[in-house]
Amino acid sequence: MDALASVFIWLDYAAVAVFAATGAMAAAQRKHDIVTFGFFAAVTGVGGGTMRDLLLDAPVFWVNRPDYLIACMLAAVAVWVFGTGQARLKVLLWLDALGMAAYSVVGAAKASALGAPPISAIIMGVLTACFGGIIRDVLADEPSVLLRRELYVSCALVGASVFVVLEAIGLSDFSAGMGGFVAAFLVRAAAIFWGWMLPPFPGRGGDRSGGR
């Protein structure tokens, strides 16, 4: 785990900041004040990791590391100052893909290190990568990431699964972590470029547009 932690430590902070920025942008869309910006940013930035740690009965990662919350507040201030132009939204979309990919592996790796079974570790990876966004969407009264048409949750599932499988067959933490990260990011990139979607339920009258 030391090698994996050293590789992903800055991506961990970056992912928190990126997710926090998406929370602040959700507040911006509703024309909220700076306090709400900070609240949305913090909940989105640390929400997934918080839920993961609570379910694993582990110390919540940011309680003794306020620098994570500082990263969230800085992201909120940056959105407040620089706004939400289209160019910035496109950059953030790709940064979000990197953050999602990193967190899918970080979450699975932490769960695995704490003795969680493989399936549970995968679910923890998905939850870490996605739960903050779910809370953000609920607070902002936006369609949940679970209901959006583009692949997102599935990308986190791919990344966490690849990590767990590679770790199970004996690859080093570093190799397994990089494999999971790259897999999640590539699937998300393909979804952004080519609009990849899962096939929807084929029942009559249902939405045939796919999703997740």
Rank of each mutant, 00 (worst) to 15 (best):
I70W: 13
A71Q: 09
A71M: 14
C72R: 02
L74V: 12
V79Y: 01
V79P: 05
F82G: 11
G83H: 01
T84K: 00
T84W: 01
R88T: 10
L93R: 08
W94D: 03
L95G: 10
A97C: 12
A97R: 08
L98I: 13
L98F: 12
G99H: 05
G99A: 09
A101S: 04
Y103P: 13
Y103I: 13
S104Y: 10
V105I: 02
A108W: 09
K110M: 07
L114S: 09
L114N: 10
G115C: 02
I119R: 08
A121C: 01
I122H: 03
I123P: 05
M124E: 12
T128W: 00
A129Y: 07
A129V: 05
A129P: 01
C130Y: 09
F131K: 09
F131V: 03
G132V: 08
G132N: 06
I134F: 15
R136Y: 08
D137M: 00
V138D: 14
V138W: 11
D141W: 10
D141N: 13
V145A: 10
L147I: 15
R149L: 06
R149M: 10
R149V: 13
R149Q: 15
E150P: 07
L151N: 12
L151F: 01
L151V: 15
L151W: 03
L151T: 08
Y152R: 07
Y152M: 12
S154I: 12
S154H: 09
S154V: 15
S154T: 15
A156R: 01
V158S: 06
A160Y: 01
S161K: 04
F163W: 10
V164Q: 07
V165R: 13
E167Y: 12
A168Q: 14
A168Y: 08
I169W: 08
I169P: 00
L171M: 13
L171W: 09
S172H: 08
M178A: 12
G179Q: 10
G180W: 00
